[in-house]
């Protein structure tokens, strides 16, 4: 028992600090990805709902591609492909060398995947908003942006929340993939500890416990948010 506690201690002998950093990294990556993914997902849904067929087609293509590719492959394509593209742009055109920030690459890849699924959630939420809401806003003379901000989005959020909470949990788990391109998240830290101490079972079980705790905490928070979103409803 003491042996395992020293393994977990902070400092030179233990792996506690490395793993704590990893957990912090996992959480911050997920939190950084969320707003980008939500924003993109919302506009993808608007695009798919658009009357203009060219916008529709462009938005649909995006969701088909990023819902069809494995998350891991998306990550590699963004990471290595981005590197090649940047090299092409900067080295040959401007003569500079620029390295792809792997945090940014991970964030972009996760946001692409998240937004293609989020667009689906928003799309079905849009369907739940009666046409009369748009007509009412139009009759009041509200411009498009205000219609969205004041009339549609507040109702949309309530309808989309259950689906989005699901996506958040998926996002939290998908962040584990960035350990493969060398980002020091929970999986990376526990893997490092496992290799160095030969206590693979202990550390990978710990990783599972960490993810379970993260899902548990976030599902509690999401439940509270959903409850708050429903506070205007008649019970």
């Amino acid at each position: 028992m003491d042996y395992y506690l020293t393994l977990l201690s902070f400092g030179a002998t233990g792996w506690g600090d490395e793993i704590a950093h990893g957990v912090l990294f996992t959480v911050s990556l997920a939190i950084c990805t969320l707003p980008v993914g939500l924003f993109m997902g919302f506009f993808l849904a608007l695009g798919i709902n658009s009357k203009e067929p060219s916008i529709q087609r462009a938005a649909k293509l995006f969701t088909i591609i990023f819902r069809g590719l494995p998350e891991l492959l998306t990550l590699f394509i963004v990471y290595y492909g981005g590197q090649i593209l940047l090299n092409l742009l900067f080295q040959h055109v401007l003569g500079m060398e620029i390295e792809v920030n792997s945090f940014l690459a991970g964030m972009i890849a996760l946001a692409f995947v998240f937004s293609s699924y989020a667009s689906e959630v928003f799309l079905s939420a849009f369907k739940g908003i009666p046409q009369g809401q748009y007509e009412g806003a139009f009759a009041l003379g509200l411009p498009w942006f205000k219609t969205m901000r004041l009339v549609i989005v507040p109702q949309l959020i309530k309808l989309a929340l259950p689906g989005l909470s699901n996506l958040w949990l998926i996002l939290l788990k998908d962040t584990s993939l960035v350990s493969i391109i060398g980002l020091t998240d929970t999986m990376f830290a526990t893997g490092l500890a496992a290799r160095n101490t030969k206590e693979a079972f202990f550390f990978f079980a710990l990783a599972c416990v960490v993810y379970l705790a993260l899902t548990f905490v976030s599902s509690m928070a999401l439940e509270a948010i959903e409850k708050r979103a429903r506070r205007g409803e008649v019970r």
Binding site: M187, A200, A205, A207, C208, Y211
Partner: peptide
């Protein structure tokens, strides 16, 4: 457990962890 943890973690737990 299986829905709350990443597939990657489960895979590592079984492969490296149980392999121990």
């Amino acid at each position: 457990f299986f829905r709350g943890t990443p597939l990657l973690a489960q895979l590592f737990l079984l492969y490296y962890g149980f392999g121990q």
